[in-house]
Design a protein around this nucleic acid. Structure first.
Length: 401
DNA sequence: TCTGGGGTCCTAGGACCC
DNA sequence: TCTGGGGTCCTAGGACCC
């Protein structure tokens, strides 16, 4: 007989906004962003002006995450706008993680503002709910922001629970409570049911999570494949997945950029591609990984996405080698004069060992040496201290607005 | 003044082999 | 003068998450 697992999901309320608010208060600002209509957003000049987080007062007048700043300002003309500060977010995220390590060894950092805790072997005579309250209280007192805590026997239910009413709340969602607490919710509230799935489910007469749970599983599988099975299991609160304490190595690494203006010149796009390849391979080498697949992504001005990929002859983390291949892929897919809004580069199928076949390539050693030299300068003096030509270009574009 | 960036996973269809 | 059927590998695209 298996022991029932004891799982918590800790979710920072309004993470980006709360953390920005704390930073500003510390710098002597007298206004608490959490108490006025405010939002964290991208830069409109860089054409990334969307709302990433909003305060409760902004939410109250209809501001939603993901909409454009322009739309948000129409709804709320006195909205206080703030830019992002990912360094600060990482710092607060680390503080939260450090505090949580006092409670269990089995913690999964699900995102910058969410953690799963497997408390099964760490309750020490306390109840799971008591631990949830303690964590909630300590984070508030010691770190200065609030969290929701979801309490249950598996990750899915704990996560659904932490999403109930906010902020600063603790909710349980044990299997016996599913029918009352989860089934009446709109099916779109279920984890993994996104905006493309909702209309499909609605067409089948499924509107509430309960409808999905009671629907014929086999028909769902027939119509939606593996995803149908997963959706049905989630609706019924089934989830066997483990809390994974050690982060697995990345499976892919990529960077992309929305260009400040559409570009339809292949040479210009190529120089930006070089900058992206340089960043991605730098990250790759930092993790001691080698890629065997690369892909280039393009988005046209009317938001059509295209991607092309190819395998490398041997796995590599070398900037020049990978860039040469990326260029070929790019030239294959790009038709001159099509205005491009976004360009992205990604490496896949990562491994920790170099296959070393290009041992025969006399240039390889030199290329690797160059990468190493540039990397150490970047690590010492900052990434921007030294770059290849394309990098300078990309910054020019960004500055020009 | 339309619409970010970084990931993971799944699927359909084509190429190729026996 | 019709057009098998498995299996595997690969690519492009898409859905979802935060």
């Amino acid at each position: 007989m298996e022991v029932e697992r004891q799982i918590l999901h800790v979710d920072v309320n309004n993470a980006f906004l709360s953390w920005t608010a704390i930073e500003r208060l510390r710098k002597g600002d007298s206004v608490d962003l959490r108490k006025i209509p405010s939002a964290i957003c991208g830069d409109e000049n860089k054409r990334s002006g969307i709302i990433l987080a909003k305060s409760p007062l902004a939410k109250a007048v209809g501001v939603v995450t993901g909409e454009t700043v322009y739309q948000a300002m129409k709804k709320c003309p006195n909205l206080e706008l703030c830019s992002t500060d990912f360094k600060a977010y990482q710092k607060h995220s680390d503080e939260l993680y450090d505090l949580l390590t006092e409670y269990t060894d089995v913690i999964e950092r699900f995102s910058v503002d969410e953690c799963f805790l497997d408390m099964t072997n760490f309750l020490m005579g306390d109840t799971l709910l008591a631990k949830a309250h303690e964590i909630n209280r300590r984070v508030k007192n010691e770190l200065g922001f609030t969290v929701n805590v979801g309490v249950s026997n598996n990750k899915l239910l704990a996560k659904m629970a932490s999403d109930f009413s906010k902020p600063d709340k603790i909710h349980t969602l044990y299997p016996s409570e599913i029918k009352n607490k989860m089934w009446p919710l709109d099916v779109s509230e279920l984890f993994m049911i996104g905006k493309k799935s909702v209309p499909k489910l609605n067409k089948m007469g499924i509107f509430k999570i309960g409808d999905l749970a009671c629907f014929d599983k086999n028909i769902l599988i027939k119509r939606m494949g593996k995803f149908g099975k997963l959706a049905w299991e989630y609706a019924n609160g089934f989830d066997e997945s483990e809390v994974v304490a050690v982060r697995e190595k990345a499976k892919s690494i990529g960077n992309s950029i929305t260009l400040p203006m559409d570009i339809s010149n292949a040479d210009k796009l190529e120089s930006i591609l070089l900058a992206l390849v340089e960043q991605v391979t730098f990250r790759l080498r930092k993790e001691n990984l080698f890629a065997s697949t690369i892909s280039v992504q393009l988005r046209t001005k009317d938001f059509k996405d295209f991607s092309h990929q190819t395998k490398l002859d041997t796995s590599s983390s070398n900037t020049k080698e990978i860039y040469e291949k990326a260029k070929i892929v790019f030239r294959e897919m790009y038709k001159e004069n099509i205005p491009i809004r976004l360009i992205g580069f990604r490496v896949d199928k990562l491994s920790d060992t170099d296959e070393q076949i290009s041992f025969f390539d006399p240039n390889k050693k030199e290329n690797d040496k160059l990468d190493k030299a540039l990397d150490s300068i970047k690590s010492k003096y900052g990434y921007m201290s030294i770059t290849r030509a394309g990098e300078l270009n990309i910054n020019e574009y960004l500055k020009r607005k």
